[in-house]
């Protein structure tokens, strides 16, 4: 298991603004407004505590429906099979922005400061995705020395025909309970700003 703490991310402003509905061609924003939003984004970002966890799992066999992994798990997804069938291994990844930012969003909503809450929420969501980007690059470097390559794209449960229940498989393989992440019976992750993904490893 590989665990990275305090991941030194840069703030993904572009993605945060896009999530907030900003469009370069349609949205008009005064400099003072943009400065104010940037400052709130920075505040929200400072509340995030980024961590990433990943593990390599070998593919035992490719079936008609998907994959059988060396861990004994079976993933059923024709979509994922089509994308990753050439890779001999999978990389299971988890990223989290931590608990504090989510709790602060809830508090802000209670106080009626919904604008700030929405910006914090977007900041945490996009930053958690940026952690996965970071992890992919990090993994690429770690395996490159062995002549191995990670797939350019990653895939998350809920995407295509990858059932949300695959969250449980990734959760178990990564033993995420040891890193303060909880998976509910409805496959929801707590802290909320946590994301899971699968990539291929040749």
């Amino acid at each position: 298991m590989n665990h990275l703490k305090n991941i030194p991310l840069s703030i993904p402003y572009k993605e945060i603004y896009a999530r907030l509905g900003y469009s370069v061609h349609k949205t008009s924003l005064q400099k003072s407004e943009k400065d104010r939003i940037d400052a709130i984004i920075r505040d929200g970002f400072s509340l995030c505590n980024f961590q990433g966890i990943y593990k390599q799992v070998k593919v035992l066999s490719v079936t008609q429906k998907g994959f059988v992994l060396e861990s004994g798990h079976e993933i059923e997804s024709v979509y994922l099979k089509d994308k990753l069938k050439e890779y001999g291994s999978m990389i299971m990844m988890a990223a989290s922005a931590g608990r504090i930012v989510t709790e602060t969003v809830t508090e802000l909503m209670k106080k009626g400061d919904n604008g700030r809450a929405v910006i914090y929420d977007a900041t945490a969501s996009e930053s958690a995705d940026a952690v996965l980007d970071y992890l992919q690059k990090h993994i690429k470097m770690q395996f490159a020395r062995s002549g191995m390559a990670i797939s350019r794209l990653r895939y998350s449960p809920g995407y295509g025909d990858i059932d949300l229940s695959v969250q449980k498989i990734i959760y178990d393989i990564l033993e995420l309970q040891d890193y303060g992440i909880i998976l509910t019976e409805y496959f929801q992750l707590i802290p909320e700003k946590s994301v899971l993904a699968i990539a291929g490893l040749s």
């Binding site: 890779y87 191995m148 040749s202």
Partner: peptide, 9 residues
């Protein structure tokens, strides 16, 4: 840049 061809990098 590396790419995957026939299962090889």
């Amino acid at each position: 840049l590396p790419s995957l061809k026939n299962g090889k990098t």
